[in-house]
Simulated assay, not measured.
Amino acid sequence: MRYRRANVPGATYFFTVNLQDRKSQLLTEHVDILRTAFRTVQQRYPFKIIAMVVMPEHLHAIWEMPEGDVDFSLRWSLIKVAFSKALPRQENISTSREKKRERGIWQRRFWEHMIRNDEDLEKHISYLHYNPVKHGYVDQASAWAYSSLHKFMEQGMLDVNWGDIAATIDLAGFE
């Protein structure tokens, strides 16, 4: 059965991408490798990162695809491969992954949601920026280093105290 994705060229998408080992901290331990993987793929297959947060074992990102282009799956595949190749082989690899010459770092699939309007975009940006607080890594969103929240604050798009109080953020439907 073929997995169905929302494929609209030039659209904006929210993604959740997970490591295979949900107790791992590879993404934050090797965030520079992850950044390099993103830059390398963006040079060859452009896309705009609107917002992003990197957690120890998963990440959330909002991308705007180039007009006429919808191949976000290729980009994620290349990012995962570049990140994985830069790490030493220490993970357990299942027989099925071995047969396919895959590493055991990432979950095979990712989750995507096509952003439908400005309100949907704002809710997803808030959700990803608040994610480190939700998972208990920090008490306030601005304390998490691996987040585009800092750029939003620098540009004056969000107040420095944004995310200090969970009640001020409308995260309905994201539990």
Rank of each mutant, 00 (worst) to 15 (best):
L74N: 11
L74E: 14
R75S: 04
W76A: 01
L78V: 06
K80T: 00
V81K: 04
V81D: 05
F83E: 00
F83T: 00
S84Y: 00
S84F: 00
S84H: 04
S84T: 09
A86G: 02
P88K: 11
R89Y: 02
Q90T: 07
Q90V: 06
E91W: 02
E91P: 02
N92F: 10
N92S: 09
N92V: 09
N92I: 09
N92M: 07
I93K: 03
I93T: 05
I93P: 01
S94M: 07
S94G: 08
T95N: 12
T95A: 12
S96L: 08
S96N: 06
R97E: 07
R97C: 06
R97P: 04
E98V: 07
K99E: 08
K99S: 08
K100S: 11
R101K: 10
E102G: 04
E102C: 09
E102Q: 11
R103S: 12
R103G: 08
G104C: 10
G104D: 10
I105D: 00
W106Y: 12
W106F: 14
Q107T: 15
Q107K: 15
Q107D: 15
Q107M: 15
R108V: 13
R108Q: 15
R109Y: 15
R109S: 15
F110H: 12
F110C: 14
E112G: 06
I115Q: 01
I115E: 02
I115T: 05
I115W: 00
I115A: 00
N117E: 13
D120S: 14
D120V: 11
L121E: 03
L121P: 01
L121S: 09
L121M: 15
E122Y: 09
S126Q: 08
S126F: 02
S126C: 09
Y127D: 00
L128H: 06
L128M: 11
L128R: 03
L128V: 07
H129Q: 08
H129T: 05
Y130E: 01
Y130F: 10
Y130S: 01
Y130R: 06
N131G: 07
N131V: 07
P132V: 03
K134V: 07
H135G: 10
H135W: 13
G136K: 12
G136E: 11
Y137T: 04
V138R: 05
V138S: 06
V138F: 05
V138D: 02
D139A: 06
Q140F: 09
Q140Y: 09
A141Y: 04
A141E: 02
S142R: 12
A143R: 11
A143Q: 14
A143P: 02
A143N: 11
A143S: 13
A143F: 08
A145S: 12
A145P: 08
Y146E: 14
S148T: 15
S148H: 15
S148W: 13
L149Y: 03
H150L: 10
H150F: 14
H150A: 13
K151M: 13
K151T: 14
K151I: 12
F152C: 07
M153Q: 14
